[in-house]
Amino acid sequence: MDERLPDPSRDSGSLRTFNLMRLMRTMGHTVHFLPTKGRFEDPLAPQLHDIGVGLPHGMSATHSASAPAWLRRHAGDYDAIIVSRYHLAWSWLPFLRSAFPRVLRILDTVDLHHLRESREAAAKSSRLLAWAARGTRRRELAATSHADVTWVVSDSEKRLLAKALPSARVRVVSNLHQLPASVPGYEQRRDLVFVGGAQHPPNVDAVHWLLTDIFPRVRRLLPDCRLHLVGAGLREATAHLATVDGVHLHGHVPTLDSLLEGSLVGLAPLRFGAGVKGKVNQYMAHGIPTVGTPMATEGMGLTHGVDVMVAEDADQFAAAVVQLHADPRLWRQISEHGLKNVSRHFSAEAAAPEIVATLSGRRTGPAPPADRPGNGTTR
């Protein structure tokens, strides 16, 4: 259960949702997706059908008007309901607890929103943002308390929740990525890439820092270097900035594969945030060495100079980019170790045991027709 149908090409949260559902279908669970906003005839619906995920039967054309009524009629048909992100769970889980006490209620946090917001408040020295973050924390912890199981993406977030709510049942189900059959080598690549939509405040801040401080330093050292900015809304978010030579704005693209396969270095200059950063996962899953801040690489089991390059200021970012450009041996080492990190921590094989433990004893079976509800797991 989420607000809209997942678009795996748009943001890491959608990609996570899509891959989680695909994994649960592979594991034998029946899965339906219940969107609470948008329109039923969404062009993304065939993508769900292709991986065996059904959409609810009996919904009107506008989801937002019919989702509550549909859920009241059908929630009891399911063994487990996964609610994505705290703001939906905060309102839906208390209802599900009272109306359907036998249904397993799972909160997928995606990331801890209050942690991200509090870090943004600190980075911007904003009392107003700090006040808002405290409100988010109260709602996020309330949503966790109403869930039977809460999924987080890293051990550090699990420890944080365990300290705040010792009685909560928390499991680490991190981002999922499929590794390609083959990865282009150093010689087949060039340019830098940043992936991230402007709807996410850490991305807007990162792009501003990248264009005003980091990339000009890179260009002075590598005059022919180009930077690709990929993500919905980035063109509008950067309209107030002066034009920077060598920058190519792509906005939202249907698929990232060709851009990622041709990129030499992935950039993650995030100065605040939370959770595991999907862009870093995506870079590494495509064999791209990443230069990122400590914030961007936290909770991922990465080591500077081994499977990632960590930079804390603009000079360090530029130096790391130049080093990866100039040293094919280092590039290949970090590329190879990054792929191993994804396989070890962010693959279907890594996530499956935690999902099995969460859903232990729940019914499984073949998917029903896509236009009919069935027993199983919905999201």
Rank of each mutant, 00 (worst) to 15 (best):
S91W: 12
G185K: 01
S98K: 14
H177L: 11
S118P: 04
W151V: 09
D191N: 15
T378L: 07
L141Y: 10
A45N: 10
A143Q: 09
V356H: 14
V308G: 00
K340P: 04
G251A: 03
M300V: 04
G273K: 03
L210Q: 02
L71E: 05
L192G: 11
P101W: 13
G233P: 12
H87R: 14
L249H: 03
V253I: 08
R127N: 07
L330K: 00
N203Q: 07
A311C: 11
L359T: 05
A320V: 01
R39C: 08
T36L: 15
G365M: 07
A69M: 15
N281D: 03
R105L: 11
A239G: 05
P368S: 05
A80S: 15
D111V: 10
L359N: 00
L112R: 01
L115F: 02
D313K: 03
V153E: 00
R119V: 10
S360C: 01
R97C: 04
R127Y: 13
R189S: 04
G246R: 00
G292F: 09
V152T: 14
V153A: 02
A352N: 13
R16S: 09
R219D: 11
H63T: 12
N19A: 14
R329D: 03
P184N: 02
V153T: 01
S60N: 10
L339E: 09
A80L: 08
E349I: 02
P373T: 06
G185N: 03
T243C: 06
L260A: 05
G301D: 04
S118C: 07
V193K: 07
R127F: 06
Q47C: 00
G275T: 09
D371H: 09
T378H: 02
S258G: 06
R134V: 13
A367H: 11
P43Y: 10
D50A: 15
R217N: 11
E312D: 11
T136F: 08
R127P: 00
P353F: 07
D245K: 09
L88N: 04
